[in-house]
């Protein structure tokens, strides 16, 4: 294990401890927060919130902004791909070369998406109005890290830099706007429980109500 490896391990350990602490405060309340008599099924609402309600044609945030939606999906997919590569490279697990090439191309696209989202935030006066330095930095951090992953795939000598970058990213996630990665699923579950209990989600059609 090199020092960059140890740095990554330390970053991962701190990230895990902090994330566990945050989730411990956020999650257990889901059973008890609403004692009202249900009209629908809270759990079905939560499942719908994580599935059907996320479909792009169900949400105006996707439907009205198809370009932003596609760019966002690609960008986040790039993050998952980059994490997978960090794990593989850190443990020196080899994959067919063709996957390297495909990943390089894909990460070039996803990092480009990150740049596009950053440009949008800079260009839009509406977004600038309630953006903080953290919003810009979080984007730069993830986009830059995707870029370093791409470079490492092209040149394995960059591995140390990638491990350090990943450690920094993991250390920053619990503190800034990137913490949404930790709270996304609980947020959708809470919203789903709320609408599920009230019989709003899953969305029903008229026929199913009359039956």
């Amino acid at each position: 294990m090199t020092i960059p490896h140890w740095f990554l391990v330390a970053g991962l350990a701190i990230f895990t401890i902090l994330t566990a602490g945050m989730l411990r405060k956020a999650v257990p309340a889901w059973r008890s927060y609403d004692p009202s008599r249900p009209k629908g099924k809270p759990v079905s609402g939560a499942i719908y919130s994580l599935t059907g309600a996320m479909l792009p044609w169900k949400k105006e945030s996707a439907r009205l902004y198809p370009a932003s939606y596609i760019i966002g999906v690609l960008y986040h997919t790039g993050t998952f791909i980059a994490f997978a590569w960090v794990a593989l490279l850190a443990f020196n697990i080899g994959l067919p070369e063709v996957l390297d090439s495909v990943s390089v191309l894909f990460l070039a696209v996803t990092a480009g998406c990150g740049v596009a989202l950053l440009a949008k935030r800079i260009a839009s006066s509406d977004l600038r109005y309630f953006s903080s330095p953290d919003d810009y930095f979080s984007n730069l951090l993830v986009t830059g890290w995707q870029g370093v992953t791409l470079l490492t795939l092209l040149n394995r000598d960059m591995l140390s830099a990638l491990l350090v970058c990943t450690g920094v990213l993991l250390l920053y996630i619990p503190f800034g706007k990137l913490r949404h990665a930790i709270y996304l699923i609980p947020a959708r579950v809470y919203l789903g429980l709320f609408y599920g209990r009230r019989g709003v989600w899953p969305a029903k059609d008229r026929q199913s109500w009359q039956a």
Binding site: M22, E60, S68, F130, K177, H180
Partner: peptide, 12 residues
């Protein structure tokens, strides 16, 4: 706590 920490300021 969950909802306070979830907004990403996407503006969508």
């Amino acid at each position: 706590l969950t909802h306070l920490n979830s907004c990403v300021h996407c503006g969508l």
